[in-house]
Write a protein that binds this DNA or RNA. Structure first.
Lengths: 204, 204
DNA sequence: GAGTTAATCCTAACTATGTTAGATAAACCA
DNA sequence: TGGTTTATCTAACATAGTTAGGATTAACTC
């Protein structure tokens, strides 16, 4: 009989069409807002009628889910490129610069990944797992500089999302809060690093 | 025509119905999510048909706008109740406890007031002015403790929204980030205070 | 190559949405 | 009372996401 074909033309075409749809979806969403995505618009953008999209995605939320996965994958991949040195403060700065930069360079993607604001949408467990990956790497990165307690990690994520949020909400396209990243990281570093003088430890 | 009636029964009834509609809207929105508000549901909740709501509000966004105004007014009013002492750090803590508390006690209201996430909705200028009031008071409050530069103010708002955001997104109903408020304020205070030896007194 | 099968795409239509038009009843004022 | 404004209704429109069912096309089997 025939051995397994090296290429599956159907799957290839299907995947390529899926990618094309997602590409168009990102474009539309950046123009009209995340919740403003219309399947009819999206379909016409790729030369289809709306119901034809259901050949490639089970629902509108499935499209959001695929976009979420792309964003999370992109984040995880680029996060690994942030270099680690033997200077913890420099690493903190670099890491936070990356995070805030990544988030603010595409506010709609940030809204999709980090703010859960679409009415009926929640990423599927296996999709969400991708985004866990990024957070897990942050934890190991911090552990590498001696920060292991949950409180310190939580405080850092709060600062990160806070800077990002303010930047996107109150100065979109600008850098009013991006400029504060280094200062914030120095503040944080001095806070979590025990100084030569005895540092008061906060108890729960 | 010229005699002014002491009471305007129509206006009174109208205002009362408006209030009743808004009350029902808050309830629905807390149950179904901010964007999940349906005019037909809302109308049936107050014993009307959907189009009858247009007697009281020009559009769905006008309802959001009225809710925004209620929230902003509530915030501004309660903000004035936060006491000011001659201990800047204590004031910082109290102020931030209030802010994070206010935001997390009603996430939907937070979403409406601080995250601009409803597709076509923006508060009317006169509505938005109410929320400016609150931020302006924060600025004077900080100026009272010697913080006048924009960077410090921006850093503080970032910390505030960051703590709030993480609390709502990742531990709704809990206090994982609320617990960090005091620590965060100490960190911030020590960062923005030039001389850790003696803090300046700003009382007359 | 012919026939079969599965994938793809279409039109028509269903439900739910915000909203408008127009009619009718109720409340108020002179 | 009569006249006017207000409140409410039903019917309907446009636009959503989605489903049903048929037609076309590509791939596979013999």
């Amino acid at each position: 009989m025939l051995d397994k074909p090296v290429r599956d033309r159907r799957s290839e075409r299907r995947e390529s069409t899926r990618a094309e749809i997602l590409e168009a979806a990102w474009t539309l969403v950046r123009a009209e807002g995340l919740a403003g995505l219309s399947l009819r618009d999206l379909a016409s953008q790729v030369g289809m009628q709306a119901p034809s999209l259901y050949t490639y995605f089970a629902s509108k939320n499935a499209i959001y889910d695929a976009m979420f996965a792309q964003g999370a994958r992109d984040y995880a991949d680029r996060e690994t490129l942030v270099p680690t040195t033997d200077d913890p403060l420099a690493d903190l700065r670099a890491g936070m610069r990356f995070f805030v930069g990544f988030c603010t360079e595409d506010p709609v993607r940030y809204q999709l990944l980090f703010q859960r604001t679409i009415p009926g949408f929640e990423p599927a467990p296996e999709t969400f797992a991708i985004s866990i990956e990024g957070l897990e790497r942050l934890r190991t990165r911090l552990a590498g500089m001696g920060l292991t307690d949950q409180r310190s990690l939580d405080l850092l994520t709060a600062i990160g999302t806070g800077l990002t949020d303010q930047q996107i909400s109150n100065d979109p396209g600008g850098d009013r809060w991006i400029r504060l990243v280094d200062e914030a990281m120095e503040m944080y570093f001095h806070h979590v690093t025990p100084t030569p003088v005895k540092r008061r430890r906060t108890r729960a």
